[in-house]
Each structure stands twice: as C-alpha cells, then as structure tokens.
Computed example of a mutant assay.
Amino acid sequence: MKFLDEQAVRELLRMEALIPVMEDALRALSSAEAVQPLRNVLSVPGHGGFFFTMPASVSGQLGAKLVTFYPDNKDVHTHHALIMLFRPETGEPLAVMDGRLITEMRTAAVSAAATRRLARKDARSLAIIGSGVQAQSHLEAMRLVRQFEEVSVWSPTRAEAFAREHGVRAATSAEDAVRGADVVVVATTSRTPVLQGSWLSPGVHVNAVGAPRPDWRELDDEALGRCRLYVEAREAASRESGDVIAAGHIFAEIGEVIGGQRPGRQHEDDITLFKSVGVAVEDIAAAGLVYRASGDAGLKPAWPADSGTAHRSS
C-alpha cells in the first residue's frame, strides 16, 4: 500500500489536469454513474471543529476521505484530510494520501468547471472575496478557463499582502471588489453574508464555496433572489448549505449542464450562482488522478483517452 504525503501530492497534481477530471466526476454523479451517500458529520465537543467521513465510487475508483474542519484555526490550516483508495474489484487497499491539498485544489477546479459553463465568454474581470488558500487556488483555476484582464481581491485581514504576492488589485471593500466584476469568487469562513445582491452586475457569474453548514450564510437574500442557482448535488446542497436552504430552489446540478441535460447560461444578462459544498466523488476522482500519476496502474483511467465529455470545452 502506498502512502503519499502533501509534498508528494503537490508534485503530482496539476490544476490543468484536475479540471477535466472534476468535470467527468460531476457528470457521472448527475448521470447516476457514481455512488456517494451524504457525508456523516461529527461535531467535535469543546473545540468548535467538525469531522466528516466521505465515501464514494466513481469512474472505476473506490475510496473515502476523512476530513476535519476547524473554522477558527489561526496558525494552522482550517482543513486537514486523509484520502484512502481501494481496488474496486477486490476491496484491497491501494493508497493513503494527504487530502488537504486535494481538498484545496479540487474545490477550485470544480468552480472552474462551473465557470466554464456559466460565465460569459467575454468575462474579463474577476473579484475574489477572501485571501486564504481557496482564494489562491481559485485565482489559478479561474485563469485557466477565462482570460481576465483585471483581478480584485478583498478580505478583512490580508488583501494587501495577497495582492502584492499575486500581482492583482487590493480592493478597499467587498463592494469595491464586486461591483462591475464579470466573475465573483466568495471563499471565506464567514458564517454571515459577505456578498450583497445589490452589488451584482447583470451577466455576472458567482462561485460561492464557503459556509458549508445549514445555519451559515455567505450570500444575502437579494443575491439569492437574483441568481439562477446551480449545485454539485441537490440532496447534499439542500441539507448542508444555509444559502441553498434560504434560496429554496435549485435550477440544476452542474453535472447536468456538463452532460447536456440542463442548460447553463441562456442570456447575456443572466446572473448565475454555483454554490459548492464539496462532495466525495470530487475527492476520490482527484485522488485517483494522483495515484495514476504516481506510476501505478492499479486504477483505470477516469475516462477513455480519446473521448469523454470532460475533454470538450464550452
């Protein structure tokens, strides 16, 4: 059985390869070709943390992620994880790998897959609310699916440092970052709304990846009311996301859009929202990509080399 620590995962995993793998996993999930239960959540008494168990079978891969989420962590990451892969034919363990970086990168790759389908083709400005690892990962992923001429970032802590490090503009407020933007990423640990609908321009696409609890919110009621809402999985989003619960409706799963069953953007002025809670098929498909890149042939490719929805751009 192979063990891959975070440094090994970092050397093997590339965002440009991960995005199409996420597209295929989401398509498989929405087409009933993948199996995943709702994740189990354990609140850690006295420490404000959460422990999640997330099994899945997708595209010839079988595994589970164990992940902790401590939103109040200051000097260490808020998320830590291990992902285990098993041989689907026999149940034999194949690998254990660090899942923190996979969680970080697959979240951004899924947002990129949604942005490819939902953002306007001529989107040129990006706003990011947040300045942590998800902000950094999303900046990389967003630039792979749209050609941005202007990027603005805001956070209450280190927007200036983030802007200097990545060569983008530090906004003076969340409103300053968002107004006029073509694509918005909300990647915070806030439990109350940080994005207001009154700031959103016609035609904007929003990716919201925080607030993963049913009583937490990233978006205000006006934002939810103005957006056409897309999610990874209806059942998971409806139970786990306070924003989705408040919205009261879901237009489509993004995998249905990738697979052609439901429409993406229909008009230039549509305001679209992809609300991500993170689902197990993403982690297992990403771990399978890492495992194959490590030189083992114990898992089948996620799709045939010469075909597959994931290879088509749109």
Score class of each variant (00 low, 15 high):
Val41Phe: 11
Val44Cys: 14
Val44Leu: 15
Pro45Tyr: 10
Pro45Lys: 13
His47Ala: 15
Gly48His: 12
Phe51Ile: 14
Phe52Ala: 06
Thr53Ser: 14
Met54Tyr: 02
Pro55Lys: 06
Pro55Leu: 12
Ala56Trp: 01
Ala56Ser: 15
Gln61Asp: 03
Gly63Gln: 10
Lys65Phe: 04
Lys65Pro: 06
Leu66Phe: 11
Leu66Tyr: 06
Thr68Gly: 12
Thr68Ile: 09
Phe69Lys: 01
Pro71Gly: 05
Pro71Ile: 04
Pro71Thr: 07
Asn73Val: 10
Asn73Leu: 08
Asn73Tyr: 04
Asn73Met: 11
Lys74Ile: 13
Asp75Trp: 00
Asp75Ile: 04
Asp75Thr: 08
Asp75Glu: 06
Val76Trp: 00
Thr78Val: 07
Ala81Thr: 01
Leu82Tyr: 06
Leu82Asp: 04
Leu85Asn: 05
Phe86Thr: 15
Phe86Asp: 14
Arg87Lys: 07
Pro88Phe: 04
Gly91Phe: 03
Gly91Val: 08
Gly91Ser: 04
Pro93Ala: 15
Val96His: 12
Asp98Trp: 02
Asp98Lys: 03
Gly99Cys: 07
Gly99Phe: 02
Gly99Pro: 03
Arg100Thr: 15
Ile102Pro: 01
Glu104Met: 10
Glu104Gly: 05
Met105His: 08
Arg106Glu: 07
Thr107Ser: 09
Thr107Lys: 00
Thr107Val: 09
